[in-house]
Nucleic acid binder design. Structure first.
Lengths: 237, 237
DNA sequence: CAGTGGTCTAGACCACAAT
DNA sequence: TTGTGGTCTAGACCACTGT
């Protein structure tokens, strides 16, 4: 059973996505939602505020709630779209992974810091090439602690690590911190992403957390510059 | 008079920032906050949830609220840090602007779409170089509608457009949608940002909105690849 | 079990906008 | 004045965690 605010959120979000609520149009006011969904104003407001924080709507005292214009570019993949899923779920076609390197190394100070383990503790060292529709898109360097995420194998890597963690290990992935930057492409990028010297990558550094607050994955994804963007929305408070 | 949840939020956030609440430590539980600030649980929870959405803390049923590790790199400027301010306010030293081009053009279809005006309506066409501590950092191409933001002059451009809009025009800036990507540096970048051919830029495309929901600024900021990052935090729901 | 957060209610008063 | 959202209360019940 989903929370009531989630039901309302889904109703509004789907309406925005499928065009029932068009760009610029006014959404039902809170009291209307309250009577339709038999809830209190606080519950309705929570659903609306989630949409505000996603940048899908804005709300004005005395006026109402309105659908914001969408910002979409269909030729590229937005990193935010991936959210906390693996790439496998994108709407951009069939994706697969090619494992280039898979082994154990001793954690450097930086890796240890990010994963909240001790320096020189063993960590998985995984380098994968992400391929969508048979075209190389992303080189992904991943570090994970075997103490936290045991039993990683080649088979797991060829599928989604994330679904292994959630379905096989029964752990919950809760959140991720991402930092992106532009970088000059290196030899690996040239070889695997088929980039020329002058063509850069969009590197996304990520620390992903389980729902117990423990960081379980530290990764660097180097995306082809022409195929990826990275979006965000900020509201002033 | 600040809202009560904001007072609580500031109290917790300052405590995290100044080290009163250390990384990994447990924050006061809701009932403690309620009695200290004489508020209801809903109000305390709102403050905590804001910190969750910023990625500063996490909360677990049955356990409590805990401070997350910070991700900070002091050598570079994070675009999120700028938030909705001009660069003038960064903690990275004295900043100024050099206006390279300032005039009016007719809106292309793309500009008109983003600013929600008609094609061929006049728009300000502004190109500025951002300089921090006498080093070039960012080339910023800005489009704004004079119908919405009148009276832009060279003087305004040398200061902050944002403070002009808020203080002189009395308008409120509410939110911004940003998309970033890596790009090959062009001739302008080479000339003004002192980049070599092979060195890329981090381009951030932004649409900024007033609190009446109207987009007032459409801009492209091309940052030196070695001096800027772009951060975000996402929580699974 | 007690401690803690997640959700929800049924009101209340206020601020702001349009008429 | 009416419609709308912003904030807040004082409870309630539930779910999860650790002892």
């Amino acid at each position: 059973m989903s929370a009531k605010y989630k039901v309302i959120y889904d109703y509004l979000r789907n309406g925005i996505t499928d065009g029932t609520f068009k760009t610029g149009s006014k959404l039902p006011d809170e009291l209307t939602i309250c009577s339709e969904f038999n809830c209190s104003r606080m519950t309705a407001k929570k659903a609306y505020d989630m949409l505000v924080s996603e940048g899908l709507i804005y709300r004005r005292q005395g006026q109402g709630s309105f659908v914001l214009a969408k910002q979409q570019d269909l030729d590229v993949i937005d990193v935010q779209e991936r959210q906390l899923e693996g790439l496998s779920r994108t709407s951009h076609g069939r994706s697969k992974s090619h494992v280039i390197r898979f082994g154990l190394i001793f954690a450097t100070k930086e890796i240890a810091d990010k994963l909240n383990i001790n320096e020189n503790d063993p960590v998985y060292d995984i380098l994968r090439l992400r391929i969508i529709n048979d075209k190389p898109y992303t080189l992904e360097q991943t570090y994970m602690s075997p103490a936290l995420i045991p039993g990683i194998t080649q088979d797991v890597l060829n599928e989604s690590i994330y679904s292994y963690i959630e379905n096989e290990l029964g752990l919950k992935i809760a959140s991720a911190q991402k930092t992106s930057r532009a970088d000059i492409s290196n030899d690996l990028d040239h070889e695997y992403l088929k980039l020329k010297d002058i063509e850069p990558v969009l590197e996304v550094e990520q620390v992903a957390y389980l729902d117990n607050g423990k960081p379980f994955e530290y990764s660097f994804s180097r995306h082809r510059y022409d195929l990826f963007t990275f979006s965000s929305y900020s509201v002033r408070r």
